[in-house]
Amino acid sequence: MTRSNLSRLLLSAVLAGTAVQAHAVDVEVEIQNLTRGIYFTPLLVTAHTPDQSLFNVGEAASTELQAMAEGGDISGLETAAMAISADIVANPAGGLLLPTATTTATFTTSDSNTSLSIVAMLLPTNDGFVGLNGWPIPQQAGTYTVYLNAYDAGTEANDEIRGGGSPGAPGMPVPPPLEDLIGTGGSGVTTTISNAMVHIHPGNIGDADMMSGQSDIQNTVQRWLNPVAKVTVTVTE
């Protein structure tokens, strides 16, 4: 037997072992906002079965995802997650997760809930969110790091001006402290949705004018480059 065959055999043995041994593990999920000036609304952290998901790139957002991405409301997603017996930590930061701040969610996964998903809206945006979609939780004890990108739910035009957070309401919700951090009087960047499926967010444009201009977003502070979050997962058995 050649060595490559042997290692293939060993690998399949390891994989088979993993499948058999899938079991409840204690998981600590530390989430850090890496951005200079973007706020995360209350986070939803869930462990669920691999066949479920909160969102999928290239597919239309669910109404529950839309409510989260446009207004920061995770109650719909939380209800949906409970319905599929997911392990859930809702709002671990107790409100907004400020730029560069860190929060931690801790739970014990049920046997079959081996996929980790995380979402929260990004402020100020129209329907931007930070997301982790079905990351396989290692069954082996250890510390693992994942970096998250910013997505666009594809449900609202990115006009970048003050508005509402209800699903379908145009404009961006501006809860405190955002109301004092963004501009006003913007004419609106765009009125069209270029891609109605969930996609990588094109980023904020903003402008340099706090009183008028095209956008209410500050271009030197409230932009980002991916990744926008660092997730450190510590698995113990």
Binding site: T100, S215, R223
Partner: peptide, 20 residues
């Protein structure tokens, strides 16, 4: 500035939306 290390938001440039 924020007096906190973060990831960088990127530079804007005068050819984008920062005339100065």
């Amino acid at each position: 500035d924020a007096d906190t290390v973060s990831y960088h938001p990127g530079v804007v440039s005068s050819q984008d939306t920062l005339p100065d």
